[in-house]
Write a protein that binds this DNA or RNA. Structure first.
Lengths: 195, 195
DNA sequence: AGACTTATTTACTGAGCGGTAGAAAACTTT
DNA sequence: AAAGTTTTCTACCGCTCAGTAAATAAGTCT
């Protein structure tokens, strides 16, 4: 066993709580006091376990991508482009309209911010861009497989679906309910696959 | 003429500068020091002229809606729904990809925030909701005029176009360029009018 | 038992936050 | 010229921010 006094809190559970605070308030909006209070630990414990605020956010973000945001990568593995889009849209509706944590961390974590959070903003920009790229690659495969018409551009499609997802996130942050966003997903699917 | 020492700065110009600072950094991310430095005035002058940070933001927001964001109301007056959507999409591309002020104040001003900015967040939510409502009313008129098929739902269409616009704003905040967003607008227009 | 290691607690730091007091300056009024 | 009004300036307020020093507690090691 490891030496020294044993930690009195569950690191994973605490990280999960931190994630939810960041999710609701954003990186800058969540203060260390907010975080420690919610996590039930003191500041030195937090710093000892997670480094600093920025590292804590990055760890929470990783946890988000693997947990509540995992539906995205799952969706990409569906056999057809149509199913990919259906899955990603409807699962996104469910995710961003979770009454406890509305919205998407990658969008509202730090869409724009003061100077101190600039690196976090960049990180989230890069993650969104990577997601779009992943989707683009998936659509390119679908075109190669004859699953999508060769007349469409995979990058354009990925950008379009990304925009819908991000629009959903904004509307969810604005209080839109599940039924409304589901209609939005239906609307986007009505013109899929594109000609 | 009015009594007392005359003001040494142009209120409108200062407000315009404040708008641009809020635009780039968001409500919480813009500090009073950021604002006064950019506006070229001291804090007491700012408070005397504009009240406090929240009032300053609201005045800047009004100015935004009447200025850089004015294309939205202009678009609604186009004679056909197709033209409304074309105009609002392409003008939005131009607006949110302004290299000096990327993005949309109504989206990135306070999408999510700490407790102190909660009322600003609510205000922006309400404004976005109103814009969608205006668009919905416009589409309802189009349906009544036979300009759009009676099978579509005006509210659904408005929500859909709003999502595209908000998605554009997020992508612009993430550094997407004018040509990319133009392709996104084209993509959205390809399936318009909806069946 | 005693040395070693790690976590917890309390109390604190310096910096930045939004906002303001008070005096001096620049104007209009009488 | 003197009184009244408004803006300007410097200096400051209390508060919150992220982050930490130092002592104590709770374990494992030899």
């Amino acid at each position: 066993m490891v030496m020294g006094r044993p930690r009195e809190f569950d690191v994973e559970a605490a990280l999960d709580t931190a994630l939810h605070v960041f999710w609701r308030k954003g990186y800058e909006g969540a203060s260390m006091a907010d975080l420690t209070e919610a996590m039930g630990i003191t500041k030195p414990s937090l710093y000892a376990a997670f480094g600093n605020k920025e590292e804590l956010f990055r760890k929470a973000l990783d946890r988000y991508v693997d947990g509540p945001g995992g539906y995205f990568q799952t969706a990409l593995q569906k056999p057809t482009a149509r199913e990919v889009v259906e899955h990603v849209l409807y699962e996104s509706v469910n995710a961003v309209t979770d009454p406890d944590n509305p919205g998407c961390l990658a969008v509202q974590g730090a869409l724009c911010c003061g100077d101190a959070a600039e690196t976090i903003k960049q990180e989230l920009m890069a993650r969104r861009s990577n997601s779009e790229k992943d989707m683009s690659v998936r659509f390119a495969r679908a075109i190669a497989e004859g699953d999508l018409p060769a007349t469409v551009d995979a990058g354009d499609l990925a950008r379009y679906i990304s925009a819908i997802l991000q629009g959903m996130a904004v509307q969810a942050a604005g209080g839109s309910g599940r039924d409304q966003l589901r209609k939005l997903a239906d609307m986007a699917l009505r013109s899929w696959p594109p000609a």
